[in-house]
Amino acid sequence: MTSASTTTDVVRGISARRWRFPRHVAVFLAPALLVYTAFMVYPLLDSLRLSLYSDEGAFVGLANLRELLPGGSLSSSFWNALGNNLVFFAFHFIVQNPVGLLLAVLLTQHLLKRGKGTYRTLIFSPTVLSVVIVGFIWQLILSPLWGVVSTPLLGLTSTALPTLSLMSVWQFVGIPMMFFYAVLVGIPEDLIEAARVDGANGWKIFWKIIFPLLLPMLGIISIITYIANLNAFDLIYSVQGALAGPEFSTDIMGTLFYRSFFGFQLQSGSTAMGATVATAMFVVILLGVLVYLFGWAKRVETYEL
């Protein structure tokens, strides 16, 4: 809106006596706006709309959503999936951030004489691999028949979800590492030197100077991870299949959505229930983003360096 009014002022100032619609603004906005509306906003709103209808097309209001609440037919599956999803995220949050930070610190310290670029590339490379490949390789490594451990890590209800989470952490740890690395190399050397002159040790420098500067980035990484984790599907599907075994212990909302929408084996797919699960996912993610925006992003201090 500001840009529009500024343009108006300019237009008014230069030539026109009356206000004219700033057409070029519309032209510049149109491509992104139209494509985004057609392929993102419209499908999203339409799937929200679909969740209010039955499979036969009759309007049922929130009746579909009630199936997800206690007492409904999908209730136990849904809450199990949501719980697993949060565990999945917790593992990423707790493991991925410290490990990513540690790697980034190691890369910025002068411990490595040579090969910094090589290490950075190597640690980042799993991120660009297809999830299917990552899943397949880890499945072979962890196979009790051909692999390195005899414990069926992927086959026990107690270990399957943590194992899958750590596989995912292994794949994506390069991303927080890169983000942290970018912040760390941006911290001016004189800040650190000044602290050292004042008598601060390494530990103190980290907690009092580096860490506060990292906090905004930590928030951004966490919210990106949260969105990606809550939307996750591919890793679980490629390793454990759509039934997310054993005993649905690795079932997350993505796999639950897949089964409800497309059906599975003898289970017929249901557009309405699929859309309902998708709507629930949307709401859960939205809540998380709101918590981030108002609970974190507004409070954490950002320093201009």
């Binding site: 075994g245 089964r259 289970q267």
Partner: peptide, 23 residues
């Protein structure tokens, strides 16, 4: 028998596996 929700075939898979797993 697999027309409704919960789906009997899917449940059979899960139950057969968990019975063998002794859980």
């Amino acid at each position: 028998l697999s027309r409704g929700e919960p789906n009997l075939e899917n449940e059979l898979w899960a139950v057969s596996a968990t019975v063998i797993n002794d859980t």
